[in-house]
């Protein structure tokens, strides 16, 4: 790279083209795939009521909520190359923001969401700043340990249910109106959050910020050499992802009308990573597909045996040993080859 081009890169005046790396799903294909998924989800409630299976909407809401959490993790994992193993803690903190405020009589969803975002952003800022001082296996273990710290904090917080969790007296309201009381409105609200989060993160990853983040993933030393401080960009991404996961937690608490420390256990964090990788990380649409696939697979395996986790584990190991790139990788291989 000549000195001239790197000057351009520093000033951020790089022409706004689709990212060079990544195939179909990283560019316009990603938006198309996401639009298809959102459209399919949007017509789900009428279909569910037509075939007389209202529980379908409940399952779909759960899927959408976890898709938001997986999407936020993709910013950290897929774009920032930070293997965070404590992401479920943010989901749990968001859920607890709803439950704790609600137990004090504050039911407005806007206040709860603001509290959740604030608490998660602060937690992400502090733990991220410490964790990002380290790299590699250290980072994985530290994020895991901080996640466990939050978990044990909630377990021992007996004033708010402790290990047993806390049941919500009612779902959140908006300006005093119980708009989320029905399952279908809650589903559409969750879907709207998912769509907005997708669009927001897409804009973010295509912006200068996103390019610096990707550059840091590819080669942190070179990014430093051309004048960026990767730490600041990575920490910002970590905080944004944490706040978004907190928002997913707000929806999760409303969907289940119950919160417990189990939401924050490290197994949940592991499952979120599985969703992102299963779907294809660094694609944004992949993790949404991954969340859908993972939760459907979970439900489906549970039909066969109480030992369904065994099947899930075997599948995971085989997936890692014999395939690369998850669902999105498969789609890319399928469609990517057809193009010149």
């Amino acid at each position: 790279m000549s000195a001239g081009t790197s000057d351009v890169a520093i000033s951020g005046a790089v022409p706004d083209v689709a990212p060079r790396r990544g195939g179909v799903l990283a560019g316009r294909g990603s938006a198309l795939a996401a639009a298809l998924i959102f459209a399919a989800l949007a017509v789900l409630p009428p279909i569910a009521s037509a075939i007389g299976d209202p529980f379908l909407v409940v399952t779909a809401t759960r899927i959408v909520v976890f898709a938001i959490a997986a999407l936020s993790l993709d910013l950290v994992l897929g774009y920032g190359a930070m293997v965070s193993f404590g992401h479920a803690a943010f989901v749990g903190l968001g859920a607890y923001a709803v439950a704790i405020l609600s137990s004090h009589g504050i039911d407005d969803v806007l206040v709860q969401a603001l509290a959740a975002i604030g608490a998660c952003a602060l937690f992400a800022l502090v733990t991220g700043a410490i964790s990002l001082r380290t790299k590699g296996v250290y980072f994985i273990m530290i994020t895991l340990a901080f996640g466990q710290m939050a978990y044990f904090f909630m377990v021992s917080l007996s004033a708010y249910g402790g290990d047993d969790g806390l049941t919500l007296s009612a779902r959140s309201t908006l300006f005093g109106l119980p708009v989320l009381a029905g399952d279908i409105p809650l589903f559409y609200a969750s879907l709207a959050v998912l769509a907005l989060a997708f669009l927001g993160l897409r804009a973010l990853t295509l912006s200068r910020f996103g390019r610096v983040l990707r550059g840091t993933k590819e080669n942190p030393v070179r990014m430093q050499a051309i004048g960026f401080r990767p730490f600041a960009f990575q920490l910002t991404a970590y905080v944004i992802a944490g706040a978004l996961a907190g928002l997913a937690g707000v929806l999760l608490a409303n969907q289940a009308e119950f919160v417990s420390p189990a939401y924050m256990s490290w197994q949940r964090s592991g499952e979120l990573i599985v969703m992102v990788v299963l779907g294809g990380m660094g694609t944004l649409v992949g993790p949404i597909g991954g969340a859908i696939a993972f939760l459907l697979l979970e439900d489906w395996l549970a039909l066969f045996s109480e030992h369904w986790k065994l099947g899930l584990g075997v599948l995971l190991v085989l997936l890692v040993l014999f395939t690369r790139g998850g669902i999105a990788g498969g789609v890319e291989r399928l469609f990517g080859k057809a193009r010149p």
Partner: peptide, 12 residues
């Protein structure tokens, strides 16, 4: 991480 997480599920 993924493979050993899967292994935990299998062995537990």
């Amino acid at each position: 991480v993924l493979a050993t997480f899967g292994l935990i599920l299998i062995l537990n």
